[in-house]
Design a protein around this nucleic acid. Structure first.
Lengths: 133, 133
DNA sequence: GTTCTTGCAAAATATTTGCAAGACG
DNA sequence: CGTCTTGCAAATATTTTGCAAGAAC
């Protein structure tokens, strides 16, 4: 799957900003922040454009957003694996690497009477393989 | 446990802002936002004071912070139940009510080789008992 | 050529910091 | 009275909006 195909598949205009962002997402094993994208695209685009592109790609479901406390916002491709209801993210508290974790176990939490669950976000914080102590 | 006791126990000065905040937390079954606290304390304190009081109470471990995406930040008392490594919050996408959910089930997620878990935050989104459709 | 996207400027929002005045113990 | 806390002003950061020029199809 290429950036071009992803955009066409979702009937989105193929602009260089969107295509550049998607290429970076496709090449990365980890979630990326706005700043990381900006650096790698050599600051070619305005911040406003990034924000609007994020919204477009989020709405299309091509990427999803990962927010860690209020510290950090990252984005990652939505793959079949991450499209699931149940979605686990790992955040390294040392290097801030953030990634989607595959899980086969079905997690169920008993809610109080009258509460209804739509989705569940799970964030695990710790040290990644490069930062292990 | 009273607000006064909580502050003394943690060797914190007993100021009216801290005490007022803690009284609201003690009386509430749900997490509260800065705005909710401000309204209920009739805007008696500066925003800066709230932020600094949050930091003080967070550092002391008296309260904890719940961030929902980037939309909303709430705070709730840290009770023995919520002091656990594993922490479940419920967020109602209609009325934005946010609360800590008790769970006895121990959730374990297999991390990739070399990754180490310190903590896990679980956020369940859905409708609360008042907003159920 | 019509519609959607971009860049710029500016506004809105959330949060942090410095400093002098004031409250707590 | 010494130390910690508050309020104000201002800085910083993030995100949103309006509008005219430009690109995509």
């Amino acid at each position: 799957m290429t950036a071009k195909q992803l955009l066409q598949q979702h009937k989105l205009k193929r602009t260089s900003c969107r295509e550049g962002m998607l290429e970076l997402f496709l090449a990365s094993k980890e979630a990326l922040s706005e700043n990381e994208l900006r650096e790698q695209l050599s600051g070619s685009y305005d911040r406003t454009t990034f924000y609007r592109s994020f919204i477009t790609l989020l709405d299309a479901g091509i990427i999803h957003k990962i927010v860690v406390d209020n510290i950090l916002t990252k984005y990652a491709l939505t793959t079949p694996m991450t499209r699931e209801h149940q979605h686990v993210h790992f955040f390294c508290t040392h290097c801030e690497t953030t990634k989607c974790i595959q899980t086969d176990v079905e997690i169920t939490i008993q809610l109080p009477e009258g509460f209804h669950q739509d989705s569940m976000d799970i964030l695990i914080k710790g040290s990644c393989n490069h930062c292990k102590q």
